[in-house]
Structures are given as C-alpha cells and as structure tokens.
Amino acid sequence: MAMPGDPAALKAAVAELSDSDPVIARLAQNYGLPTLDRRSLPDFTIEYGKPVAVPLEDQLFSDLVEVVIRQQLAGKAAIAISGRVRAALMDNLTPQAVIDSDPDLLRASGLSSAKLSAIRGLAKAITTNTLSLVSLACASDDDVTAELSKLKGFGPWSAQMFLMFSLGRMDIWPSGDLGVRKGYSRSYGLETVPSAKELAVLGERFRPYRSLAAWYMWKSLVDLPI
C-alpha cells in the first residue's frame, strides 16, 4: 500500500484510483497528488514551522486541538480562533501549557465552553498518562477511533481527521463529513447530496485508498477542512 511520505507510491495509488474511476482521474489531473502528512517515526520529532524539532506527542496534541477548533466551523473562523489560542499560550500549544493556562483566557480566544472542555480533557488525559498519542500513532484505525472516542468532545469525525492528516492513514472515508458529501455530489453530478449512510456504501469502491478519494472530494470544493 502507498505511504503518504513516498511520492512514487502515492503517485501509483492515485494512478490505480484513476484507472478505475474517470472522475478521480479528472480531479487528479486538476489538483495533483493529495497531501496527507505522515509523522517521522520512530525518532518522534518533526519540524513544525520552525528550525527546532517538536516532540511528536506535543505535535499530535496540537493537531487534535486544531481538529477540535475546526468542528462545525468554516475555515477562516477556525484559523482566526486557532491563531488567538496560540497567541494566548505564547505559541506553546502543549498539554501542560493548556493545563497551566487560565481557562478564561482561552475562552476569550473564541473557544466555546464545550471545545475548551474537550481540549482541557485531552490535555489532562495526556499529562496524567491516561493517553499516549505516540502509542496511538502505531495503533490500528479502529483502535485509534475507539480510544479518542472515550474523550468528551471527540467522535468519529475528529478521529478520522486525526487519522488522515496527522497519522497519514490511507483508507479513511469520513462519510459523515458534509464537505465530502457535497464534493461527491458535485464531482459525480448527482441531483442531491448523498446521506452519510449512502456515501459510506459509495466509498467502498475506493478501498484501500479512500483517504485519497476523500481529499479529492474536499478539493473539488476548493478548500480542505484541515
């Protein structure tokens, strides 16, 4: 199976999808190769916009915070809130920094009470060693979803975004995501937007590269959700 960090293998995966689906072929021609990030295991550090390495646990935490912020929010609004949250934490978005911060300061950044509770709950789970995101990076898709779903404020969509854009998993199909549903309807010329249940069935033919197909559905609507 193609890995996101391997351009040649990713190109082969897109070619395989394109050979079996002319719509994907057209989208691939228009938008190029999908961009799904895979973290640099096993040294547990990555580069995050700076010349210094960020511990993988902190980076994965930051990724999940971004996912929470983006829940049911348009891209521009989410980006603005994310910037204010990072500024409030002096660009130190780590579990311990969230635990040590003034909740009112984060709430003033634009976080709803529910999202603030979810982020602080995630930070507490990590700082008390109840949850290890680095360990999740090596777990199966189902196990990642099950573990994250134990946390308040995290459901299937949050787990799917984490799996796709933080762990680079190739066969995730977020059929409940409105953007994927609308993108599918637009790309395939449907008169109506398929339901989550309908899209789950429609996506089966994209295995084992459903993440790539989902990326193209989002891209067909111009902006990605993450």
Rank of each mutant, 00 (worst) to 15 (best):
K197E: 14
T145A: 04
D223R: 15
C138E: 13
L167F: 04
D63K: 04
A213N: 06
E191C: 09
D142K: 06
A28K: 12
Y48T: 10
S135F: 10
I81K: 07
D171G: 15
F165S: 01
L224A: 07
L178R: 12
A74N: 14
D141F: 04
L190R: 15
D142V: 03
D104R: 00
A25C: 12
A9I: 15
G75K: 13
A53M: 15
R120C: 02
T45W: 05
Y31R: 09
I119T: 03
S158H: 03
S62W: 15
R39I: 10
I24A: 09
S113C: 07
L202K: 11
D21I: 14
A2R: 11
L136M: 08
L167V: 01
Q71W: 02
Y209S: 06
E198R: 12
R120N: 00
Q59H: 11
S149E: 01
A118Y: 05
P225M: 10
L148F: 03
L122G: 01
T35C: 11
V85E: 00
V222H: 08
A139C: 07
D6V: 09
S113K: 15
R70I: 06
K50F: 08
E66G: 14
K197G: 11
L151Q: 04
S18L: 07
S135V: 13
L73R: 11
A196T: 03
K150R: 14
D223C: 05
I79Q: 14
K182N: 12
K115M: 03
I79K: 14
G75N: 12
